[in-house]
């Protein structure tokens, strides 16, 4: 099972920092995401793109998680040589993560 099967995500950028929201379709899956989608696991999953720290914010009232990934955009949107300089596609990459 993939994260894609139970949650959706939107990527955002600020300088060299990538943000990824993670929102379960069903409220009851929030606890499961809390348990299984740790900052460490996300850092490992995105290890080829994200070179800095990954921080996880828990938002129980919204039933959502937010991952803030540093040094994740190849030096930043304006000067990077990659085709998706904003890291917009990384929401899809996150949702490709396997769930146990």
């Amino acid at each position: 099972m993939k994260l894609y099967d139970i949650a959706h995500s939107r990527a955002g950028d600020k300088g060299d920092t990538l943000t990824l929201s993670l929102i379960p379709y069903a409220g009851e899956d929030y606890q499961r995401l809390l348990r299984e989608v740790t900052a460490d696991r996300v850092a490992h999953h995105l290890r080829h793109n994200v070179r800095g720290e990954v921080k996880r914010y828990e938002l129980p009232k919204l039933q959502a998680l937010l991952f803030v990934c540093e040094r994740a955009l190849h030096g930043g949107v304006t000067t990077s040589l990659v085709s998706d300089a904003h890291g917009k596609c990384m929401s899809g990459v996150l949702l490709d993560m396997d769930l146990p």
Binding site: H8, S9, R10, G12, D13, K14, T17, T19, S21, I23, Y25, Y57, L59, L62, A64, L66, V68
Partner: peptide
């Protein structure tokens, strides 16, 4: 709720 949550957290580096 889904569309609003995605936008609420968009480009936020500290939701607090």
């Amino acid at each position: 709720l889904r569309t609003v949550k995605e936008q609420l957290l968009y480009e936020v580096i500290d939701p607090f």
